[in-house]
């Protein structure tokens, strides 16, 4: 049983859960994710392992409420147990010493970015992080990222915190200022797409971590397929990180909408039911 031992809201829509999972805490590496089900009727949803405590046997998950499953997850309380939790899944990030790393995180994408930033820093790299969100209260994990970065730049769309502007503006500033050896971008697909376009212009090798739709997470269904360098890959077993300059982001964006009507309907029904109960 995977009991929730800690819960904290970073903002109205972003929740952190610390969950008991001793085997996964031990086996996981930066870049890995898990798949969980909240209940017997639940969907299998993928979430990145933001951090882990091997001694306590716990892993930390950070989820943004976007639909039925993440809403249900955010409603779980300390002491409750997840119905299922499986992992660690996906290829681990290949971390080595390369020099200076530019780490770009958008919205809840900062959660999966955190263990990678930590890994790069520990490997002896200079790490510059750019955190971006629509507004101040959507900036998460800033302190944790600061702990493992040489410099942190915060960007908000509305200027309510840090600098006003998009992640790409912050990134370009850095790129113009000093030599960047590698870039990693994690966030909404559209943010990764534009970050990739930017770094391509400057010829900076870039990795992006994709949040495709998944079912099993073990290579069995092909729901998570993406085109990388003209070839079809499965995000769950071949990724989730890929060479961002090779990813067909437009196809990826289209595929993320593959179940949008069903999801929207389910979400409306779910919220209606909640309102009726309230």
């Amino acid at each position: 049983m995977n009991r929730i031992v800690e819960k904290e809201f970073f903002s109205e829509n972003v929740v952190k859960l610390v969950v008991e999972a001793p085997k996964i805490a031990k086996a996981r590496k930066p870049g890995n994710f898990i798949i969980l089900r909240v209940s017997k009727e639940g969907e299998r949803i993928p979430l990145t392992i933001a951090s882990a405590d091997e001694d306590k046997g716990t892993i930390t998950l950070i989820a943004q409420k976007v639909g039925v499953s993440t809403e249900k997850l955010a409603k779980m309380e300390v002491g409750d147990s997840l119905h299922d939790l499986v992992g660690p899944l996906g290829k681990a990030t290949e971390i080595h010493k390369v020099g200076t790393i530019l780490a770009c995180g958008g919205g809840v994408g900062v959660a999966p970015l955190l263990p990678i930033v930590e890994g790069y820093k520990k490997a002896g790299n200079r790490v510059i992080s750019v955190l971006a969100a629509r507004s101040k209260d959507l900036i998460i994990l800033e302190d944790e990222i600061r702990k493992w970065s040489d410099e942190v730049i915060v960007m908000t769309d509305d200027g309510s915190y840090g600098k006003k502007g998009l992640v790409t503006q912050g990134a370009e500033e850095i790129i113009n200022r000093e030599k960047i050896d590698e870039c990693i971008a994690i966030g909404p697909a559209i943010m990764m797409k534009f970050t990739a376009l930017l770094t391509k212009k400057y010829n900076i090798p870039t990795q992006a971590s994709l949040n495709s739709i998944m079912v099993d997470g073990t290579g069995m269904c092909g729901a998570c397929r993406v085109t990388v360098g003209g070839k079809t890959k499965f995000t769950c077993v071949d990724g989730p990180e890929f060479d961002a300059h090779q990813i067909d982001f437009d196809e990826m964006l289209m595929r993320l909408g593959g179940y949008s009507e069903e999801e929207k309907k389910a979400y409306e029904e779910f919220m209606n039911r909640l309102n009726l109960q309230a």
Binding site: M220, C221, G222, T232, E251, M254, R255
Partner: peptide
């Protein structure tokens, strides 16, 4: 066109 939405493996369909 095989990666368009609405084209899925039998594994995905039957698993769902």
């Amino acid at each position: 066109g095989e990666n368009y939405n609405g084209i899925l493996s039998s594994n995905e369909y039957l698993t769902r």
